[in-house]
Nucleic acid binder design. Sequence first.
RNA 1: GCGGGCAUAGCUCAGUUGGUUAGAGCAUCAGAUUGUGAUUCUGAGGGUCGUGGGUUCGAGCCCCAUUGCUCGCCCCA
Length: 455
Amino acid sequence: MEKVSLARGTRDFGPAQMAKRSFIIDTIKKVFQQYGFQPLETPAMENLSTLQGKYGEEGDQLLFKILNSGDFLKNVNKKNIEEGNWKMVTGDIAEKGLRYDLTVPFARYVVMNRHEITFPFKRYQIQPVWRADRPQKGRYREFYQCDADVVGTNSLMCEAEIILMIKDAFNKLGILDYTIKVNHRGVLSGLAGLLSAAEKETSLFVAIDKLDKIGEQKVKEELIERGFDAASLPQLFEVLNFTGSTQNKINFLSSKFSNSEIGKKGLNDLNEVLNLLKNFGATDEHVELDLTLARGLSYYTGCIFEVKINRASVGSVSGGGRYDNLTAVFDSKEKSSGVGFSFGIDRLYDAMEELSLFPKETISTSKILIVHLDKESFHYSLKAAQTIRLNGIACEVYPDQTKIKKQMEYADKKNIPFVVVIGSEEIKTNLFTLKKMETGEQSKLTIEQIIKSIK
RNA sequence: GCGGGCAUAGCUCAGUUGGUUAGAGCAUCAGAUUGUGAUUCUGAGGGUCGUGGGUUCGAGCCCCAUUGCUCGCCCCA
């Protein structure tokens, strides 16, 4: 036999896994629809020009590129090949790539269809994305994202609704122990202001993001290494180490940000989101202001979200935020504000599996298998099957004429709960043997009675 | 891009300082049971020990290389 295998970082989803994945996807989809989001699908592949330059240099490296069809060498600059300048060659031999996330294709769609779209536009999108990353635990090269975004409004109600949708979805999925971490780009800038490090914001954010992972001492070392003034660090950590409720944190920060307009704006936004949450009749349970939350794509300009399932080892299962100028990368005149977030369902799956949160009855099979004993009863069983199906009960007939044992085994392995036995005796009397597989009990019933008892 | 670990039956894994014919459990198939699954009993099939080289009288085991998988780092869902 030829050795067959999967491409690295990809997975098959068998029936048992699909049942669980569908449970997650259907649940999330229902929540999105409940809040007025409409579905969108975009192609798996986009022009490379659409994708490149949107995710930073690192992101460009992680793009899967699609080799041009036909003679892909005809446009290659030979000098680039001779000099081993592979990055330049890439552009000559590939003009398409697999999508890296769902947000950029969405922005492309909005720009292309702005005249048809009714704003504010709320769309959800559940599709696979691809990254040429090195796979490891909870990290795949092909994985699904479930995005919901609103474009064309600055209302902070959207931020509040994102929190509500996360709560709704997790509640329905049975995930109870989780934390929705929120932060604000303005607050981060305010922090940078404390260090007078406005021009080194990014390296500050990257460093403090690691705080819970590598600890205060290591972060300090990294900051000093990156050229921050050691004398100003105590001020920063006084703020980062402040503990208290989200409201307390906001109040404390206000006193620190008296000189930072952008910092104050961030705090006001967060305050407003919390207020709106109250107006929705919801609490800020599970919501936590995390000043070290800084990761994610650099295009966020307002609130930032990230969701962690506590006691699960998969990292964040959802993330998002507001971006003021996403569509501007495709058209500088187009500056619609957008806000959105995404569930990583592969990680949700892993976390739910780890915590045994899947309901037992997620696998769907036929309710009835019709077992037949000879040619005549096989033919008879086809009509019976249709009658049962037309009454809304999933039913199948074993396709081959074979030993009853074999047919029963099939029902057992497929977890089909009922078996109907049809033989010459049954056809004569019009009473069929209904066997409940779980208990093994049997009774003789008409087809109508069988339908009634199972429905 | 950098570092660690692993690779033996379809799956999960044993395999003694290197020593005859490489094992177990599960799964598969057949029979016990020709109108009854899961449970029980009996039997059978299934292996180029990832690949290539080296050391040795002798390699699943030691050495080198290579490929694949896996776990971390960077980054990310």
